[in-house]
Amino acid sequence: MTYRESPYADAGYREQRAPRRRDGVLVRAVRALSGAVAAGVVVLAFVVVGAAVLGGREGFPGPGTVSLATHVAGAAVALIAQSWADRRFGIRALPGSLVVFVVLAALLWTQWWG
């Protein structure tokens, strides 16, 4: 029995494509920096959630509901945008990284410096 006659002949396998070219150093650097920023936004959200839980348990005022929701939503958006950027190549990856930086700037401006 040959490969064409086997039951696995049409299992959805495609021909191998040529390997993709590697991204430029600038795109890789921006994507790496936005990945670190996205991780920092997630850690910041965990800190705010922890402060809210600790404040509620110990009886001292912690971050409010708006701050808590803003940080959790910002972390979710940053993770989704970074994941999107990691799956793109070349200049198409930069909008996702830009969204991560905008989320960080918005969180810092509205929740920490405002």
Rank of each mutant, 00 (worst) to 15 (best):
A52W: 04
L44A: 15
F101L: 15
V43L: 03
R17W: 04
A45T: 14
P19L: 05
R21C: 00
V30A: 10
L68A: 11
A51K: 13
F101A: 14
L98P: 00
V41D: 01
V66D: 09
T2W: 00
G62L: 04
V30C: 06
P7S: 09
M1K: 11
L107V: 08
R20F: 04
R14P: 05
I91K: 10
R21N: 00
V48C: 07
E58V: 14
A51G: 08
L44H: 14
I91D: 13
V77D: 11
G40E: 02
F89P: 00
S83E: 12
Q82L: 02
D23Y: 03
Y3I: 07
A78I: 09
T65R: 13
G55T: 10
A39L: 03
W113A: 15
T110A: 02
G40M: 02
A11T: 06
A85Q: 03
S67M: 01
A51I: 00
L104N: 05
A75P: 09
V77C: 05
A51C: 02
V72G: 03
V99S: 03
V47K: 15
Y8H: 14
R31I: 08
A18L: 11
Q111V: 13
L108K: 08
V25D: 09
P19T: 15
P95T: 14
P61S: 14
Q16I: 14
A9H: 03
V27C: 06
A73W: 05
S67F: 00
A78F: 02
L104D: 04
P7A: 08
A11V: 07
I91Y: 08
G12S: 04
A73G: 14
W84I: 11
